[in-house]
Design a protein around this nucleic acid. Structure first.
Lengths: 195, 195, 195, 195
DNA sequence: CATGAATGAGTTTTCATTCAT
DNA sequence: GATGAATGAAAACTCATTCAT
């Protein structure tokens, strides 16, 4: 069947926005451009979304949910119970590096989201929740290694901050360079040693 | 003197933009709003700047130059020679924390600048240069402590990335909280120990 | 019978428009709003009516026909022959007052119709015919009282004009107030006296 | 000097709207059409008026103020004191007939205003005040003729209602016809007789 | 230098209408 | 008959930019 249902078309439009954001910030992207990227009539965007801002908000949900569930699926309770703790932490970092920190196009989108969060309380709250969750996942992994809940919490906070900073630098520097990768791997081993 | 000269009025306008950016992103700020915040006629903005984008570019220069020279003045060659190295590094971090990382309104502006850098090569180059310089300043301080130029470079890179990440989080979390500050101070001491 | 036939559904839609016109003028009422008020799919409105304007035109027909036949049924030839003339005129006015002049929601709709008549010749012609008929009905009643066809015609014209004016004022003033009602009843008795 | 000042341009635009309303109702008249009728750029309308509705509201003020002050200038206190009462009332009616009731283009505009008043409380209040004032002016003239304030008030109310009705009919009938004019003049004399 | 009226391109949004299912 | 997705024209409105004074 060629026909797409409503949900598909909604996703199709959100994906089109994702494509557009590789070229221009949201404010400089018109509804018509998003529609064109999605291959649909621009009027249709107002059929599926109540305003341009609504597209953005649903897009941000979509992106954050995508990465949140990606982390959750990979590092669920099962995983936490069964594997060697040290190895698990290493895998977590590898996962984050490869899928998030080093994904330049994702970093671009995330800066856009951060920038919107600055002025938009709802988006700010959404980011708070997402990062809190990621920190919690990491913190739960680090706890067995240091036996101190406060230390593990702060360490995971610092680690996430560091990774965010590195993601930021992936915009202006080459994340595929040896130095960039060495800094990431060094950090990881030192952090584990320190606990 | 009531009459301002050209340079003053230019700065006056850039400061007005800085004020405006506390409320709205640049794209949603009109020329008239900037003019009003500056207390000048909006037509005049096109006398001092050739376009709206030109105001932004000059503003970014202005901000980055401001912070670059602030760091340079405080940590010039003279300083590097005369003081106890460990203490100097600590002072550097204190300086960065207080004046940059914990300055929420500055962080807001910097996210805006990062966001523009994503799509604007000239701004990207400017950010590259500025961060490179800050890393160099820190690297020069760390070198005597570890006697390894590569280690000091990577460490300063990592430190700056971490601090950027923390500045980012100052947007969505409370940078004045005890936990936030403890994470910053812990990081600093551990980093020095590690060298 | 749950299933409505075509005629019923047409009426259902016209009634829905009537409901909508209590809130907003026709130009600000969308096809979808009318459809929702009618409890039918908006696409269906183009099955029963060839355009949005067609709904309006048929609605105006419907309203005018309704009130025209209401007057005709009540004051047909039979009535004219059998009853005391003075009393009949009084009944006519009572009827018009209660069912038309004092019916605020009807007045709202009629202003809308007048407004459309201003620019739409077909609607204008329809109003002409309707008012002519009402004047004729009244004129036929007044004739026996004055024995002058011209006087009765002009009197009925003036009376209908007066009642239209009062209906208009029922929009901005309270038609249920004592003063409003006294003016209406005074007018009626004076008019009969004058003949 | 060819250059118009701001106030002139505002009036120029309101006059353009008046012209447009001879052809189409307000809702079907676009900003661009008004601008074209005014001979100015459409963007300018948003410079002088904050929205399309604002143009309408200011236009209604303009029209009502115009006619209110026209009546006031002609029938101010001075006039009320010095002239033969009967003659004054006759002059008042002549004035209203010629300048208002028989002015078809004015009647068109007033129906538009009534129609807006139905749904817009601010416009409704404005109409209430204007008609109240006209009734008061007439009532003050009639009082000396009947020595009863209630009777003069109700009579003026009824007279204004009648004239409004006639203005309404001037839309669908020929206000220049003999019959139309005779009805107006008959009404006037009868009303004076009745007092 | 300073002002503010004027321009016109561009944006979001609405909505009557069509049409495949 | 009924549905609701899809279309595209047209609307109000914004705003950077220009320019005469």
């Amino acid at each position: 069947m060629l026909k797409k249902n409503g949900a598909d078309k909604r996703i199709q439009i959100l994906d089109a926005l994702n494509t557009c954001l590789q070229n221009k910030p949201f404010d400089q992207t018109s509804i018509k451009e998003i529609a064109q990227a999605a291959g649909v009539n621009h009027g249709l965007l107002h059929y599926y979304f109540k305003s341009k801002e609504d597209i953005l908000i649903q897009y941000i949900d979509y992106v954050i949910d995508h990465y949140t569930s990606m982390v959750q699926e990979r590092f669920n309770d099962k995983a936490l119970e069964t594997i060697d703790k040290r190895k698990l932490v290493k895998e977590f970092f590898k996962f984050i590096h490869d899928r998030i920190t080093l994904d330049r196009s994702l970093s671009m989108v995330f800066i856009e989201i951060w920038e919107i969060a600055v002025y938009n309380p709802a988006v700010k709250a959404k980011l708070q929740r997402a990062y809190q969750e990621w920190m919690d996942v990491l913190s739960d992994m680090l706890k067995p290694l240091c036996n101190d809940i406060d230390v593990s919490r702060r360490t995971s906070f610092a680690a996430v901050a560091f990774l965010e900073g590195m993601a930021l630098f992936s915009i202006i520097l080459d994340p595929d360079s040896k130095e960039f990768k060495k800094i990431l791997s060094d950090f990881q081993s030192k952090m584990i040693d320190m606990l």
